[in-house]
Design a protein around this nucleic acid. Structure first.
Lengths: 298, 298
DNA sequence: TCGCCGACATCAATCTGGCTGATGCTTCGG
DNA sequence: CCGAAGCATCAGCCAGATTGATGTCGGCGA
């Protein structure tokens, strides 16, 4: 006997309950179905096995010898399944895997994740950083924090905060040209990652629509995280999200010459698969972010 | 997680195969269903658990951590179920329980059952004798041999042999009245169980329709088996099935004065629940009886 | 002894979960 | 750049599962 597709597995569950309760009627109650349905399933199972499992006695049913032998093993197997499935829930709730950018991880999560952990001692957090947006269908992960437009098919997204940017450089570098007084002054200095599309966006906001970046040597740092490091090191001017570098500005390691911020329309979002919105750990993280982000949107 | 009625058990079986084969398509082949159906069942299970179980990678799927933990336990549980269900077949085929009358058991089965056992060494036989016709729905038993008209609802019946009867007595008793020469002579002797309805049936066959049995003391032996014993002991005349007492006649313990046999229309039948006609042990016994009984009818 | 009650079987009708076939999407290999 | 492999999606269909009503049987109490 192998459990081929046509074997009535559901009938086994009904049998288990019935054997335990010694009653079709009560088994039906426990399973939330009618006595008729129980009778049908038991008969189906008996026909499949070719052996009667119950003796229909007045007032109650009794197991046949065959049924008597079968019942404990079936019960044990179902216990095992129930335990395995229950364990899934426990264990899977125990670890929250967050995918995000290195920048967001180091500048925001690093400072606030401790609060989440204190509030949710049962949940371990695993951070995964990557450049590209992950596909939940092919990479393990529970939630992601990404910049974008907030629309991803199949994913639920919550607005976290605007994504602004503005040029930053080290105070030392600014001093080499007698200080930065107007936007055009920046063009006297090396531009870090001049191919970054944020540059024309920002310069057009300050009225310099046709600034030419082609004369700068191309650089490709990849993550913004490295732009910042280069700027702090005095390598040139980087265009950065000021929200993330307040500390460096306060410490005098970076200097933000202009208050004006530009945006490319990509904001920060918390995203996760629509289908998993009710997972406990995801709910916990969502509520945490709601508290931490003043502009959080459902 | 308890295995409530709405939990998709079938999806677990699909999951087990898929986890083993690492492929929706091949799992579908093994289970005899389409890849579409596998996809549906896996998604159903994932939605129920609220956890992805597979990572959809190009060329093949891979288990998530959750799936990786779940798979072996589910596999083990299904192995246990398969073993239990397989064992049922083995064990239930190993014992054949026959319900019959004491008379048939002692006079026919006792002499022939050995042949069946030799031909079917794997099948143990258990005999149960009782006066009334058993109800397979409330008493354990595989087959029954009973006299009757051959029509029982829900039961398959095979004709075995006619049920005749004729008076018998001990030779010694016959000698006390100078021998039994004509049917009326019997009425000079004590009649065993005069209330047995076979008596008027037999006497009317020999032309004595109005024989009066009321003057005999009533006796109630129950089984025919005891009538015979009483007759052999010389207690009186019994009306018996000659098929069963050939040995006693040959040994001179019983004497059958007349060849004429009567019948009440009740014949011997082999019966068993229609639904179990394909059970191996029942098939084996049916074929055995077919060989042994010249008039066996399907 | 009669009649009611509890429990399972049966029946007819309904409904829905699961399956299929077609199609689309993505990736890999040539 | 195209074809093959593999999974997802969609719409439609059907058999099996479920239900409510009813039938049957045996036990129990008055």
């Amino acid at each position: 006997m192998k459990l081929s597709r046509q074997f009535p597995l559901n009938a086994l569950r009904v049998f288990e309950a019935t054997a335990r309760l010694k009653s079709f009627t009560r088994a039906g109650e426990e399973l939330g179905m009618t006595q008729t349905a129980v009778s049908y399933q038991i008969k189906l199972l008996e026909d499949t096995l070719g052996e009667p499992l119950f003796l229909r006695r007045p007032r109650q049913v009794a197991l046949t010898e065959v049924g008597e032998r079968l019942a404990p093993k079936v019960g044990e197997a179902f216990d095992m399944l129930a335990e395995a499935l229950g364990g899934i829930r426990d264990q899977s709730e125990a670890t929250l895997t967050i995918h995000t950018t290195a920048t967001f991880a180091s500048h925001w999560l690093a400072h606030h994740l401790g609060t989440f952990q204190v509030e949710n001692p049962g949940i371990a957090v695993r951070l995964e950083t990557s450049q590209s947006v992950i596909d939940f269908a092919r990479t393990e992960g529970d939630v992601a924090i990404r910049s974008g437009k907030g629309v991803w098919p199949g994913l639920k997204s919550h607005f976290l905060m605007k994504s602004h940017f503005t040029p930053m450089l080290s105070p030392t570098l600014a001093a080499t040209i007698g200080g930065v007084h107007e936007p055009a002054d920046l063009l006297k200095l090396p531009i870090i990652d001049p191919q970054d599309e944020w540059w024309p966006l920002w310069f057009s906001r300050v009225g310099l629509k046709d600034a030419d970046f082609s004369r700068f040597p191309a650089t490709q740092y990849g993550a913004q995280y490295f732009h910042a490091a280069a700027a702090i090191a005095g390598q040139g001017v980087a265009i950065l999200r000021p929200e993330f570098y307040g500390d460096d500005v306060a410490l005098g390691r970076l200097y933000q010459p202009f208050d004006l911020l530009a945006s490319d329309g990509s904001d920060y979002w918390l995203v996760y698969p629509e289908s998993r919105r009710n997972s406990r750990k995801i709910r916990a993280f969502r509520e945490f972010m709601r508290k931490m982000m003043p502009d959080f949107q459902t």
